[in-house]
Design a protein around this nucleic acid. Structure first.
Lengths: 246, 246
DNA sequence: CCGACTTTGTGCATCTGTGCACAAGCGCGT
DNA sequence: ACGCGCTTGTGCACAGATGCACAAAGTCGG
């Protein structure tokens, strides 16, 4: 998860049996990676691809790829592989792409500007349809083909677009407030870049991306690698008497 | 994992028994969240905190929090809870913070600028010590207290800083190239924002953050929620018959 | 000093995710 | 027409993660 993401609607009630026909979360998290690899293959003119080749391109094991794809049906041909275009279509449909997803972005700081200009969104059908902020100096600014508006227009914007995705790129202090207003306006999917844990009702999905967290995880691994020679594999783990440098 | 991250040094060789004294990956991914919650509690003047309260602030179950903390030793007091400052210290040490981690950032586009200006890094000891790019028009630009330099200086920069973390914020086409040069210069931890799967030797850790992937995962869930009435959960789990407004 | 209350740390059961290995199925060459 | 080789799809076993429930261990009031 991630890692690295938040689940808010899982394991709430119903501990009893369930038909269990859903696509597992871990598989869903990999589908966009497969999709990107498939697009690259298509651009290279490939029409079919084996699970081994696609798995290598996506950085996973071939057995895992096959099981993932089996969760959305049997679209491969034994002895041949998968047809690239067909697979692109099926994965896109499963992910709910192939339609336009309006995105409402709140917080037009450095990160918000980067997100607004990110080319990877439009390619997948995500169009940033509103840029909101509280800072008077930013309101009215042109970013791409959009104009920054005041966050008070949030409710109107959401209502006019219907189902949409909210992106929070504000400082941490404002995030919960913005989140509450989004939820109140009917947003059920939120991507949060602010470094806070958002409280939302169970029917709302939140995914969190925390840049600092990612670096800290890398720091941990580097720390472990560097200090590895202190650990001896003898039997029990003697406390390594770590020298605290700082 | 998140999720959503890439593991490159796990399950490579040694299928046999292992002392297994390491902190699980899933726990490591949550430690930064605990750390942030603890800092917030400390700022509020709290000196001790129970697992239930800290778990609520971090958005996890209390049993999970206790097990996570138990992996780094028993630092709690039964009947009381955990001492906030002490726990901050122990988690920081476990994560390898408390020292300065030089960060080398390649790719000074919108996203790179946002990362360079992100306040959350310095607070944890991550200092962006070099900004590199290939674009001549960007080289020489001042960003914060740094000057953008040519990516050809990468090797010199890494050598002068020693152990450091590389951040790739280039377009996808340049990412593998930059990655290879980082690895060649001795970087063993890389945070990748480019939408490609990087090929690295096994001793190098890569974590990937893909903004488009996150939106696609949200799209899937929204799609599943919206299309739920098509699935017949014959036995249990009656869908709440959510009114589809749009 | 003692008993009641609070909270941690963990054994256990469950569930999810991963990888091996192989049978089933398909195309192709002969 | 038929067998051969290649690839998918999946049964199975295992490793990892999660949550429940409770004993151990501490504090606090009397």
């Amino acid at each position: 998860m991630t890692q690295q993401g938040a689940r808010s609607c899982a394991a709430q009630a119903l501990p009893a049996a369930r038909p269990r026909a859903q696509v597992p979360d871990a598989t869903v998290a990999r589908l966009p990676v497969y999709l990107r690899a498939l697009r690259a293959l298509a651009d290279d003119g490939r029409t079919t691809v084996s699970s081994a080749a696609l798995a290598a391109a996506a950085g996973v094991a071939s057995a895992q790829l096959r099981r993932d794809l089996s969760h959305l049906g049997s679209y491969g041909t034994r002895g041949v592989g998968y047809e690239v275009q067909e697979l692109v279509l099926h994965i896109s449909r499963e992910l709910g792409l192939g339609r336009r997803w309006p995105v409402v972005l709140v917080g037009v700081g450095n990160l918000g500007l980067a997100l607004a200009g990110y080319a990877g969104f439009d390619e997948r059908g995500f169009t940033i349809d509103a840029l909101l902020d509280v800072d008077e100096t930013r309101i009215g600014q042109h970013v791409g083909d959009q104009v920054v508006r005041h966050v008070d227009e949030l409710e109107d914007v959401v209502r006019s677009f219907g189902v949409c995705i909210g992106v929070i790129a504000t400082p941490g202090t404002a995030a919960q407030d913005v989140c509450d207003r989004m939820v109140g306006a009917g947003v059920r999917s939120i991507l949060n870049f602010a470094p806070v844990v958002l409280r939302v009702p169970p029917q709302v999905d939140v995914r969190k991306v925390d840049l600092s967290n990612e670096l800290q995880i890398l720091s941990f691994r580097e720390h472990r690698k560097t200090g590895l020679h202190l650990v001896d594999g003898s039997g029990a783990d003697g406390p390594p008497a770590g020298t605290v440098p700082a």
